[in-house]
Amino acid sequence: MIGRLIDGVPARGLILLGLLMVAALVAPLFASDYILTVLILIFYFAYIGQAWNIMMGFAGQLSLGHALYVGLGAYTAASLYVHFGIGPWLGLLVAVPIAVAAGAFIGFLAFRFRVGGVYFAILTIAVAEFARVGFDHLSWTAGSSGLFLPVKQYATNDLWSLRGRPVMFYYLLLAATALAFVGCRALLKSRMGYFWLAIREDEEAARSAGIDTFRYKMIAVMISAGMTSFAGVVYAFYYNNLFPEQVFHISRSIEMILAPIVGGIGTLFGPVLGAFLLTGMAETLTGTLAALGVDIPGAKQVFYGICLLAVIVALPDGVWPWVARRLGLTERNK
């Protein structure tokens, strides 16, 4: 199994991956509190980008409503905690199935009735927007006034209840990103992975090669939704407050997909690299502007826009394929 996963990866790629992992593991020893929060954000986006990439990069289904799955995960786990004192890991057992069911609902509607391309994307936006408006009026989750988790200063890290200091969330998201990376690699190299790529490349040709495209598209959406909802649970316990207007907003959905687009759609390293580039550079920009005493609202959004434009014009396949070629990390074929 491990042999299959690293098959064709150049040795220096594995060494580089090992070094990066070590660097990520020791980073909190050297990072300031501020840098640590930036790193948390980076791994949050890297993880979600990986989950989104299963749908878009592998199976070719564009979701512009992934905030839905983050929000469902976040609200489910937070409500269970606030109302019944049920911890996040048990909450996850409820949150993931809810998100998977939502994904299955969207997938069924779209794929059963042959809604594809931009219309599928619009459907994903629409359902996320329904959720935003719906949660605004749902009194059980405190509606538009926001759901708050009890907060105090934590001296210790309680991983079971996800109550603790940022460094705990850092390692949690790092582990999730690493697992997602390995998991996606395994999926991509599996029978299903080949079927997804075939569907992405040409759905009609895939069908005539015997692939049950409905089934494999459904599986892609459900895995992606379930994975994404885990990030929502972490989000809820990290930020401790949830507002439908923020959590389900379309700008959240867009923000999530920038990392894999900039890094390289359909690649495994793209979402990770994209998250580092975008979040890292955006924070540097904010920091620099603050140091210079300049206050420009929306500078980050403009920066994201410029980054997207630059990538689309210069490296339409994303930054990672270019970096991989430069570093001689392109996968060999047997």
């Binding site: 790529l197 490349e201 692939i211 074929n333």
Partner: peptide, 13 residues
């Protein structure tokens, strides 16, 4: 054909 896939991967599908 599946354009972005290699010849081998096309046939593996």
């Amino acid at each position: 054909p599946f354009p972005a896939l290699t010849v081998e991967d096309n046939v593996i599908v």
